[in-house]
Design a protein around this nucleic acid. Sequence first.
DNA 1: AACCTGACTTCGG
DNA 2: TCCGAAGCCAGGT
Length: 114
Amino acid sequence: MRDTESFYHRAVRIIKSIPKGKVATYGLIAHLAGSPRAARQVAYILSSSWKKHSLPWHRVVNSRGCISLKPGRGYEEQRELLEKEGVLFRDDGSLDLTDYQWKPEKDLADMEDF
DNA sequence: AACCTGACTTCGG
DNA sequence: TCCGAAGCCAGGT
């Protein structure tokens, strides 16, 4: 059996476990789910079925700590949701990953170089 | 089966 | 530091 299904479910599970007030990058989620390079797939999962799994989609940002969504296509909504959880944005629209990025406990991860 | 597409990431100029 | 190109993964057509 291919691993794609597992990846999907693992990714969903990981996204669900992102605590309020924290964020995770696409790459980190992909990494934890077992495919370090599948960041795009994580994005796909969010856009296609965040509703289906009640995922906290707004807690996922790109590697620079910015919202990947374009203005008018969810950007403002995501930013608002995050601000409601206490996340502060800089003038350029980015947030401080060193403060907000979720660091999962060793349960889920078999991260090699952490 | 082949090609296109995307809420990404990384590297080189 | 900023911009463009290439690499990657999986779903949709």
